[in-house]
Structure formats: C-alpha cells, structure tokens
Design a binder for these strands. Sequence first.
DNA 1: CGAAAATTTGACATGACTCAACTGGAGTGG
DNA 2: CCACTCCAGTTGAGTCATGTCAAATTTTCG
Lengths: 192, 192
Amino acid sequence: MHEALFNYIFRYTGLQLSETEMELVTSAFTFKKLRKKQYLLQEGEICKYFAFIVQGAMRQYSVDEKGVEHILQLAIENWWIGDRESYLMLTPTPYNIDAWEDSELLLITRADLLNLFDQVPAISQMTRQMDDKNSFATQRRLKATISYSAEKRYQDFLTTHPDFLQRFPQHQIASYLGITKETLSRIRKQTI
Amino acid sequence: MHEALFNYIFRYTGLQLSETEMELVTSAFTFKKLRKKQYLLQEGEICKYFAFIVQGAMRQYSVDEKGVEHILQLAIENWWIGDRESYLMLTPTPYNIDAWEDSELLLITRADLLNLFDQVPAISQMTRQMDDKNSFATQRRLKATISYSAEKRYQDFLTTHPDFLQRFPQHQIASYLGITKETLSRIRKQTI
DNA sequence: CGAAAATTTGACATGACTCAACTGGAGTGG
DNA sequence: CCACTCCAGTTGAGTCATGTCAAATTTTCG
C-alpha cells in the first residue's frame, strides 16, 4: 500500500524513487487502519504523526464551549492530515481528527520525517511543494471567508472541491464553510 | 539599513552572517521607500518582489464588486509582505499591497532568493521558519474566523496583535476581522 | 484654523442562527 | 421482511448578530 504514496511523490515532484529510497520510505511510514468514527488525534494531545491518506475520508475539527463542531479541514485519499503547529511545536492540539469513512493511513513521526529529508531528496522536495500548495489554499479560503457571503463561499466550494460532495454529508460541508446546516440547506434550495 | 534584516535573521535562526554572506544578502535585496498610500503591488499584476519591512506599516487587501476593501494582512517593521501564490506561480494577484505609513522596504525577486538559498544557509533556514510560523498564524486565524463571534475575534486580535492597534485605524482592523467599522465600534463600546 | 479622516450613533434592514418539528432513507435486529 | 432507530436533510417561525445608510461628533494634521 505504499505505492499510493510513491505515486503521490511522483506526481508532485516528477521523481521516481530508487529501490533503496523506496525501502527507506516504506520503513519510515507505518500503516494504520481506522474504522469510521475512530480518532487519529484528540484535543489536548500532541500531534505525533502526520498522516497520508491511502484510502478513506477524514475530518479535522474543533469543538466549542457549546459542543458545536467547527470543521477546519476535510480530506480524502491522496491528502495529508495532521495539526502542523502541534506536530512541529509539540504543543497540545485544539483539534480532533477522526475517520469519516473506514480509512487506511500511512503515518510518520517528525523525527522520521527529518531523517527522510536527508536521505530522500524527493521527500523534502515534496513537502516544500505541499507547503506551498497548502499555503495557497489556506490563503484563498481565508480570503473567501472574510470577503464572501455564505452563498458565494458555497459556490466557491463547489468548484474547488466537487469531489468532497459525494464523500461528506451536507452538515459537515456547512461546518467547513462556517455556516449551519439549515442555512446551507436553504442556500441549495434557492440555487437550484 | 540591511542591519534590520541581519538582526531579523539572527533572531529567527540564531545564525550570525559572515562578511561574505552579508554582502551576498545586501546585493540580493534592493532598498525601496514608499510614501503613504503608494502601492507595492496592484491587483492583476504579478508579485515580482517579496518585501521585508524595515520601517513602516503596510496593508494587503482585495476589493470586491461593491468597492469594499477586505484586508487580508496587516504588517509592520520586521514583517514580510507579498502574495506568495503570485510570487511562486507567476499568476496575477487578486490583492493590492500599499503603504499605510511611509515605509522602507527591502525587496527580493524569486530568482535572487533562490540563489541566496544556495549561498546563505541562514536564509533558507529563516524562510523555512517563516513558512512554519506563517502557516500556524493563518491556521489560527481561519479557525477563529469560522468558529468565533466578531467580539471574540476582536478579543483574540487584541492579545495576538496589540502592536497593530497603535498603527492602524479601527476601520482597517475591522476589515481585517471581517466585520464593519460600525460593528467594531459597538463591540468596543460594550467591552470597555 | 479648517479640511479630511476616523469614529460614533441611531434607525432600520437582513442574513444567518436557533429551536423544534417533520420527512425520508439506511441500517439493524427480531 | 417488517418495525424500529438513527442519521441526514428540510422546513417554519421567531430571534439575534451584524450590516447598511445617513448624520453627528471627534480627531488628526496640514
């Protein structure tokens, strides 16, 4: 199942790993299956692993005083998930990450990742690209959130993440957009 | 005036540049003064330079169909400003960046920065740290924006950016928070 | 001082939220 | 295979937070 990751690396960097590199990568990542609803990370913990999603669908969210979930990230196969700040700074995370579908993950600790950087150039190149892409995406989402109406944000979501629609229920998408499920339901009704 | 940058590098990386490195850095960055209201970047342009702010205060914002400004970033001395996506991907930027106070900047092109990476390790280390710190900040801000009320976001802002209060007028801060100046005015009245 | 910019205030409009009820599957177990 | 529950989605009524617009006031600065 590490092939999914090799393919990902190739698509991102154009680099094909050598035999040795593949072994290094394979031994650095540990495979893990999660059943729907299982946690990968819970609020207050340190984010020990970053996860590459081989198969499945995951959510990253915080829970406010009223018990309402606010979804910061949705992710499916070929995405990464984790709390970067906690992962790098070793601070307790404010987020929960759990499986929305049964999922297969490849986990890596920060220490193993740093080792890989030295030994497998494609990995450091890949993370640099991921960081870039990620910063673009967050920037765009922030821009949308402060300057667009709920409806426009939903339109935007439809074009940027059409694949998520089939994988996550509407109320999760609503939360991701920062609105309630009722509001999203009404927006959709109007728009059709 | 490159000392401000050297100090910044030292504070970020703990590394003191050698004579040669200082010269390399000095020649890679070009100095530029901007008067209040002057643009560093305008919507539709490619972001050719990233700017280190030696002195002054800058704003990065987009303008919607109604002509309303939405401030994505405020920055003062010892901050960097630029549109990363446009800078890396060479795509037209949706943002304007202008000086809110008379400012002194050190500009660097992408090509010159890539050169520096090879020649001055402290620079690549610094950017890596900046990327990290930046991604934490954006993540936090996104979390705040989707899960907090206007009032709580303002409280949050007060603790994370107390220094901005003296440098930018309230209506800019309101825009940064994604609310109107009237709403911010009312929040402040209540809160005192 | 005087003009421009920033802030405050009031009245009103509205988008989005809350709460509660209802509908319609999709399982699950008897 | 049906009854039952659970979960997602929809709908309605009322409320609340925030926006809009216009005017008044205060501050800033040439």
